[in-house]
Write a protein that binds this DNA or RNA. Structure first.
Ligand SMILES: [Zn+2]
Ligand SMILES: [Zn+2]
Ligand SMILES: [Zn+2]
Ligand SMILES: [Zn+2]
Lengths: 152, 152
DNA sequence: CGCTAGATGGGAATGATTTTCAGATCAATG
DNA sequence: CATTGATCTGAAAATCATTCCCATCTAGCG
C-alpha cells in the first residue's frame, strides 16, 4: 500500500530474523503476535483475509515454519494432527496447558520435566534427545459450561 | 481356513475387547503384537500384504484406533504427523524414547513426569488433564552409523 | 439353518501441508 | 534513477495420511 520510511522504528525485529523483509511477512508476523495463543496456519490466513490483508496461504505457512525454525515460535499438534503455532517472545522454551474446547493456552512451570528429560538424555546413550510435552484438558470456563449442558 | 476348536487358548483375548471377533481383526492384532514397537497403520498394512494376509487398509486403521481407544495401545505422532501405535500388554501407561532414524523404541521411567502432570492437574483448575510426552532422538546404533557417514 | 447388527474393503473424498514456477519485489550497485 | 541477480509471492497442482461410503459379507444367536 504505502512505502515505509527508511529505518522505521519497527516493533517487528522478528521479521528480519527470517530472511528478507517484505510487507507480507510483516503482516503475518504482526497478526501472529497479536493472536496471543496457539493458531493454525489456516486460521491465521482466514483472520488476515477477514482483516482485509489477503496474504497467500503458502506465505503464511512459510512464515510460521520459518519462525518455528528460528526458535521464535512453539509448535504443537492438536488432536487432529493439525499444527498450531504460538509466538514466543523470550528465548525460553515452554510448555502449555491447552484447552481442547476453546483453545485457551496457559504456560505451566515445566522445570521438573526439563530436569527429567535432561537426565534421560544423559543416561540413555541416545544422542540429540528432544522432547514434546503437551497437556490438554478443559479449562474452568468450558468445564462450567459443559457441566451445565450435560448431566453425567 | 480351518475351524477353531471351542475355547481356544487364544493369546488374542484382545480381539474380543474391541467388538466382534473376525478373522481380519485376529490377523491384524496378531501382527501388531508381533511388531513389538511403534508401527504406522500403513506399514502394518504393507507387512500384512507381504505376508500374504491381505486386509483392507480401512480395517487396519479401524483396528488400531479401536485398540488405542480401548487402552490396549499407545499412540504417538512422528515428526511428520503420522500416527504410530504400539501394543501395550499391561495396564500401565508408558512413555518411550523413539529413534527418529530406525524407529527403535525403549520405554523410559516416567514417574517424575507423571507426578508433575498430576500436580498440574490438581492445581490448575482445569479438568480432565491429559498429557502427551514424547522423547525423540537418534539411538546409539544410528548415531554411530551417522558419525561414520557424515563429517559434521 | 436363517436373521441381522456389525464388519469388511477399496475406491473416492478430505483436508492439511508442500511443491511448483511464472512473475513481482527487493537490495545493491553503477 | 536504471539495471540486475537474488529472493519472495501466490495460485494452482501435487502429496499423502486418514476418513468416508456403501454394496457386500459374516459372526453370533436362536
Ligand atoms: Zn476452554
Ligand atoms: Zn521442555
Ligand atoms: Zn536408530
Ligand atoms: Zn504419562
Amino acid at each position: 500500500m504505502e512505502r515505509n520510511r527508511p529505518a522505521a522504528p519497527t516493533p517487528l525485529a522478528d521479521v528480519t530474523l527470517i530472511g528478507r523483509h517484505t510487507q507480507q511477512r510483516a503482516v503475518v508476523v504482526k497478526a501472529f503476535i497479536r493472536a496471543e495463543g496457539f493458531v493454525g496456519a489456516q486460521a491465521l490466513h482466514n483472520r488476515l483475509a477477514a482483516d482485509g490483508s489477503p496474504v497467500g496461504l503458502s506465505t503464511v505457512y512459510r512464515t510460521l515454519t520459518a519462525l518455528a525454525d528460528a526458535g521464535r515460535a512453539d509448535m504443537v499438534r492438536d488432536t487432529s494432527g493439525e499444527r498450531l503455532f504460538r509466538y514466543r517472545p523470550g528465548p525460553d522454551h515452554r510448555h502449555y496447558l491447552l484447552c481442547t474446547e476453546c483453545g485457551l493456552s496457559r504456560p505451566v512451570d515445566s522445570g521438573p520435566v526439563e530436569d527429567w528429560a535432561d537426565t534421560i538424555a544423559r543416561t540413555s546413550g541416545f544422542a540429540n534427545v528432544r522432547h514434546t510435552v503437551e497437556l490438554s484438558e478443559v479449562c474452568p470456563d468450558c468445564g462450567r459450561q459443559r457441566a451445565t449442558a450435560e448431566h453425567r
